[in-house]
Nucleic acid binder design. Structure first.
Length: 204
DNA sequence: GCGACAG
DNA sequence: ATCTTGTCGC
C-alpha cells in the first residue's frame, strides 16, 4: 500500500492534539501566503512574503515535487505537504504568520491543511478556504462557523477563515481583513495562487 | 443506507 | 485542483 488512509487519519488526530491556540502577540510585520498548483502529476508551490500592513512583496519562492497522493476530502495535507516542505525550506524572510489555502481546525479531525502545516513546522498559520468542508455537527450562526458549541471558524466575505496554529480566531480575522485588496482571497494567497499556476504552466 | 466534502 | 465555451459586467 502506498497510502494508508487509516494511519493518515490517526496522524491527523495526533497533530490536532498539538495545536496551540494563542494570541499572535502584536501585529505581524511579515505575512506569507502559500499555495500549490498541479500539472502533469507534479505539484508546483509558491510562497509570497508580504510586509504588513503595507503588503509590499518582500520575497517570492517556488518549489516542486511529485504528487503521490490523490485528492481525498479531509486528507488534502498528505497531497500538498511534500511540496510545502520544500517550499518552506527556501523561505528566508522569517514570516510572523503563514496563510494557507485550506481549512485549519475547521475539519472533521480538527486538522485541516493549515493546521497540519502549522503544527509540523511549528509556525503560526491561518486557514483560508474558498469552499466549505462537511463537518458533522457544524452550523452557521451569523458569520460564525460553530461545531459543538465552539466557534471554529468565521465566514469573512466569501471565504472561510479558521485557526491554523498558534493564533486566535480574532487574530485570523483581523489579519485576513488587513490583507484584502479587492480580491476574493487575501493578497498573500492571491499572489501565491497566481504564481504557483504560472510556474505550473512553465514547468509542464 | 445515508451523507455529499478544502484543493 | 484541472479541463474548457460562451457570457456578463466594469
Amino acid at each position: 500500500m502506498i497510502f494508508d488512509v487509516g494511519r493518515a487519519m490517526e496522524a491527523q488526530r495526533r497533530l490536532a492534539e498539538m495545536v496551540v491556540e494563542e494570541s499572535l502577540g502584536g501585529e505581524p510585520r511579515r505575512v506569507c501566503g502559500v499555495d500549490v498548483a498541479y500539472s502533469g502529476g507534479r505539484g508546483f508551490g509558491a510562497a509570497v512574503v508580504l510586509s504588513y500592513p503595507d503588503l509590499e512583496v518582500l520575497e517570492v519562492e517556488t518549489a516542486e515535487a511529485d504528487v503521490g497522493v490523490p485528492y481525498m476530502p479531509t486528507l488534502l495535507a498528505f497531497r500538498e505537504m511534500p511540496v510545502l516542505f520544500r517550499l518552506l525550506r527556501k523561505v528566508k524572510a522569517k514570516p510572523d504568520v503563514y496563510m494557507v489555502d485550506g481549512h485549519g481546525v475547521y475539519h472533521p479531525r480538527r486538522c485541516g491543511l493549515a493546521t497540519h502545516f502549522g503544527v509540523v513546522f511549528n509556525v503560526p498559520t491561518i486557514g483560508v478556504a474558498k469552499g466549505r468542508l462537511s463537518v458533522k455537527g457544524s452550523e452557521i450562526i451569523g458569520d460564525a462557523i460553530v461545531v459543538g458549541g465552539k466557534a471554529l471558524g468565521r465566514i469573512f466575505g466569501r471565504v472561510y477563515v479558521s485557526v491554523g496554529n498558534r493564533v486566535t480566531l480574532e487574530d485570523c480575522v483581523r489579519i485576513v481583513s488587513g490583507c484584502m485588496r479587492g480580491h476574493r482571497v487575501p493578497e498573500p494567497l492571491f499572489l501565491a495562487h497566481k504564481i504557483s499556476k504560472e510556474v505550473a504552466m512553465l514547468g509542464e
